[in-house]
Measured scan of single mutants.
Amino acid sequence: HNLTITQGKLFFHYNPKLCLSEIHKMEEVSGTKGRQERNDIALKTNGDQASCENELLKFSYIRTSFDKILLRWEPYWPPDFRDLLGFMLFYKEAPYQNVTEFDGQDACGSNSWTVVDIDPPLRSNDPKSQNHPGWLMRGLKPWTQYAIFVKTLVTFSDERRTYGAKSDIIYVQTDATNPSVPLDPISVSNSSSQIILKWKPPSDPNGNITHYLVFWERQAEDSELFELDYCLKGLKLPSRTWSPPFESEDSQKHNQSEYEDSAGECCSCPKTDSQILKELEESSFRKTFEDYLHNVVFVPRKTSSGTGAEDPRPSRKRRSLGDVGNVTVAVPTVAAFPNTSSTSVPTSPEEHRPFEKVVNKESLVISGLRHFTGYRIELQACNQDTPEERCSVAAYVSARTMPEAKADDIVGPVTHEIFENNVVHLMWQEPKEPNGLIVLYEVSYRRYGDEELHLCVSRKHFALERGCRLRGLSPGNYSVRIRATSLAGNGSWTEPTYFYVTDYLDVPSNIA
């Protein structure tokens, strides 16, 4: 807008934040220059609390790290170098490059900038070799853009010569660093050979998330399962459950009422301010606690030095998902009996873990797994792929695949051998790939016309006998059925096997 004052003059007093240069501009645009008398524009009460600059400061050096910015700028000295009290560095987070010096300023003089007072450097006698002032900004957020400017702080001049310097606002972004852990990993099994893994992005990506790394490792069953005799009275049979499938998407929606109208769909109840505040506090606490764990609990591995020492970490090797089922080394339970199943799973520490690289999504279907087997899954978020990966501390989750139908069934015939004193040795093959492992066998036998009897055969007993022995049988026709019990439950009964026990007292003698 054009402003013209045809008559009258300007009068400025007691404006401590208004620089004289701005008042002189007002004289020019209003056409009143030359009308004012000496005392109409006070030299001592206008701009006496402001830094009124008329020179431009330029930054000469900028260096960044993930949490620091090192700045240096060209030296500046007023005509009387004693008038320079120091520099004021202003900075704040700036997602967009549209910041002005006066953003967030209120009537009390406060604003949204963080201000650092910096002492002037030592003055050199040689004007050509003056030290460049600077400042190291610490405690910054990774991968965050900051708006920065600097200006001088000078003393009051009796001659009211307006001098000083100020830089333009520059924008500097800190470097990326390792992201925080992925949030809320959930693993479920939808079949006997697959596990579905879902997660949420890290709360602090500290860069642009480029991919996720998912490692999985087959877990050995508890050692007590191999040692305890679950045929003993009072000892509860062990059981394991597989990871249940995901709930429906509708039930997972946030901010939804727990109660549904019987007449149909209901609208979600909005969260109160107290609920939102509580969630923010919980989120802040979780982030602080995660940072504490990362800094205190997890110790970084030592990389190899120039002395030739090897990095103890196993090298990563990509495998196809079809090879995942046989990740671990199978060892027989008892070496003397080769027909026992290889369900003991000690994992070799030198073995390469299978892994998958996930790009542009937060889910993965891990296939080719062994049925009813526990897996430990390790999830890392990465925001750099080359020249070397920059990934987060791992988040861990466990899951067990679903049982395989008929995996616990005894394959092959049940054979028998009759000894003296009416002892019958029953023999059968253990299931080759049971659900988890076989903890015991149930032997059901009966003599024709009598009630059915049951015998429990422990895992250890089966390994020693290759089956079991029935003792003290009365003469007669017998039928026997056997079924295995694994961590997933009972298998199917075998087809009945028949044998006849004679009275050993009636056996004919070869003595003449």
Rank of each mutant, 00 (worst) to 15 (best):
L228W: 15
G436L: 11
S305L: 08
G322E: 07
E290K: 07
Y259S: 10
D291M: 12
T415N: 03
R240E: 15
S315D: 08
L235S: 07
S248E: 03
T373V: 10
N295H: 04
S344G: 05
D506S: 12
D311Y: 09
F289L: 09
P475L: 04
A336M: 08
S239W: 13
N326T: 07
V424A: 10
T401K: 00
T343W: 10
T340F: 13
R376T: 10
E442S: 13
G374F: 14
F337T: 13
T343C: 05
L321K: 13
K278T: 15
K236M: 12
T485N: 08
V397G: 09
V359E: 08
C391S: 01
I209P: 13
N326F: 10
A220N: 09
P387M: 15
I482F: 03
A488L: 04
T272D: 06
E378K: 08
E260L: 10
P434Q: 04
G308A: 11
H371C: 07
D385N: 08
V297S: 08
L470M: 09
I276S: 10
V345A: 06
K460S: 12
R447L: 09
L379Q: 01
T288C: 10
D229A: 12
L455C: 13
E227N: 10
G436V: 15
G489Y: 11
E247R: 12
P312Y: 13
G306C: 12
Y448C: 09
D408A: 01
Y259L: 04
K432D: 11
L321W: 08
K302N: 11
T347P: 09
L237D: 10
R301K: 06
L225D: 06
Q256Y: 13
P314R: 15
I276E: 11
G264E: 05
L235A: 11
I377D: 00
S398D: 07
Q252F: 14
P434L: 01
R481Y: 07
H416G: 08
K278N: 09
I366D: 00
A263L: 11
S268Q: 14
L379F: 10
V345T: 09
K317S: 12
S315F: 13
K236T: 07
V397R: 07
E404H: 13
E290Q: 15
M402T: 06
G436T: 05
C269R: 11
E495N: 14
E451F: 10
P349Q: 02
E465I: 08
D229G: 13
T373L: 05
L453C: 03
R376I: 13
F298L: 10
L437I: 13
A330K: 14
D204V: 11
V443T: 03
E389M: 15
E430V: 07
S367A: 15
D229H: 06
R301M: 06
F285M: 13
S342M: 07
T401M: 01
E221R: 03
R318E: 11
V439Q: 06
G412H: 06
C231K: 02
N295R: 11
R483Y: 02
L232V: 07
C456L: 03
V411C: 08
S320R: 14
Q429Y: 05
L369W: 01
I482P: 00
S262G: 12
H211Y: 03
S492H: 14
E227V: 12
N490K: 04
T502S: 06
C382L: 01
C231E: 02
S223V: 11
L505K: 09
E224P: 15
E258R: 10
R469L: 09
G449N: 09
H425C: 05
E310H: 12
A263E: 08
G476K: 00
S304M: 15
A395P: 02
L232S: 09
Q252A: 08
T494F: 02
V359Y: 11
T288H: 06
E465L: 11
L237N: 07
P332T: 07
R313N: 07
P475F: 05
F499T: 01
I366K: 05
G472M: 09
V365L: 13
F337Y: 12
D409F: 12
Y445T: 04
E350S: 13
L464H: 14
P403R: 08
A309S: 13
S363A: 13
A488Q: 06
V297F: 13
Y292Q: 02
D409W: 05
F355C: 12
S392V: 04
T502H: 04
G322C: 12
K432R: 07
D506A: 10
C456A: 02
R400D: 04
N326V: 04
I482M: 02
E249T: 11
D291N: 15
N421S: 11
V359W: 14
V327G: 08
S392N: 02
